[in-house]
């Protein structure tokens, strides 16, 4: 485990919601027992529909939300219950690219200031060096040096996302967490940004966690894929295994939901999930997915299936993981 860049061990983030006087306090288990590893240079795709806990997981990894249970090991630092990380050290290890390029840039700061301030905070005081790194980083993400003194509102969505990426990379982190980096962009821009992320990964030797609800994006960039449902990982494995031999009915449903005009995939419409994601406030007993599952049996209502191996490096949390459809 020592060579892992990031390892999550049984990580849980719970929130208390509601009022003790009106209706009672409930526990929202946004993330509930996630175990994950990221090796240096690897890209992990994290998929799941809205409300499954992806973004909460991201904030916990960034050290912005304290874990309720379990630990996060990131670049040699441990975050656990009650042990908050050194933010400066964390900042040089993990960074984040945000979903909405309109809300994630300070409207009153020029690009130069957005990129130079973090360097100064981290002790780089030499003006020439700061300037050189700012211009170099702008070039890396495809912005021209003369755009440095412009404000965010003077840029398009795609360019703003380039600024967001530059900001995430300016401190030379090892791991970059991309939270739906292209879902707020025009379809025509998405491929450019994805390709930029891939180029930067090779050039700078980065690792990514690519959070997305769009399996198409994940398929394109990920080495490994983890599928989340209601705060837990239900299946994880290499991208080929996940896409060609999915073992969890939820993964099948997600793949079946990819628009496929040529009917290449042999997965039938029957695999699609029924209904809506359940509330994390009141998850169904047993396997959380059973109300929507085509394979539902009595066992599924009774107990939560363990995340067991299907093959080397491929795990699925389904009682019928060995049943191939």
């Amino acid at each position: 485990m020592a060579d892992m860049l990031l390892s999550l061990d049984d990580l849980a983030v719970h929130f208390k919601v509601g009022n003790a006087l009106a209706g009672g306090v409930k526990t929202l288990k946004a993330v509930d027992g996630v175990t994950l590893d990221i090796k240096p240079g690897e890209c992990l795709g994290l998929v799941g529909e809205s409300g499954c806990g992806k973004s909460t997981l991201a904030l916990a990894i960034m050290g912005l939300l304290p874990p309720t249970r379990g630990t996060i090991d990131v670049g040699g630092q441990q975050i656990g219950r009650g042990t908050m990380p050194d933010r400066m050290e964390m900042a040089r290890t993990v960074q984040m690219v945000f979903q909405d390029p309109y809300a994630s840039l300070n409207p009153r700061q020029t690009v130069r200031r957005t990129l130079a301030d973090p360097l100064r905070i981290h002790g780089i005081t030499d003006k020439a060096e700061v300037e050189a790194r700012v211009i170099d980083m702008m070039a890396k993400v495809g912005l021209r040096p003369e755009q440095a003194d412009r404000y965010p509102h003077e840029f398009s969505g795609g360019q703003r996302q380039r600024i967001g990426i530059a900001r995430a990379l300016i401190l030379k982190p090892k791991l970059v967490l991309c939270d739906e980096p292209v879902s707020a962009l025009d379809v025509s821009i998405r491929a450019q940004i994805i390709n930029l992320l891939l180029e930067l990964k090779d050039e700078l030797g980065l690792s990514y966690i690519m959070i997305s609800h769009d399996l198409g994006v994940v398929e394109h960039v990920s080495d490994r894929v983890a599928v989340m449902y209601l705060g837990r990982i239900v299946e994880q494995g290499g991208w080929q295994e996940i896409f060609e031999d999915p073992r969890h009915p939820y993964t099948r449903a997600l793949i079946a939901a990819i628009p496929d005009p040529f009917h290449r995939a042999a997965i039938s419409a029957q695999a699609k999930a029924k209904g809506e994601i359940a509330s994390a406030l009141n998850p169904p007993p047993g396997c959380h997915f059973h109300p929507r599952c085509p394979l539902k049996a009595d066992l599924c209502v009774a107990e939560y299936p363990p995340l067991d191996a299907v093959a080397a490096g491929h795990r699925a949390a389904c009682h019928f993981r060995d049943r191939v459809i």
Binding site: L59, M62, G63, L64, R87, M88, M90, A91, R92, V94, Q95, M96, F98, Q99, D100, A103, S104, L105, N106, Q109, D117, P118, I121, H122, G164, R167, A168, L171
Partner: peptide
Amino acid sequence: QGYIQAARILGYSDLRIMFTQ
């Protein structure tokens, strides 16, 4: 907002976030 979270992630101190962001 993303830029406030980004500032925290980049290691800005609380006071710096309040006054510059």
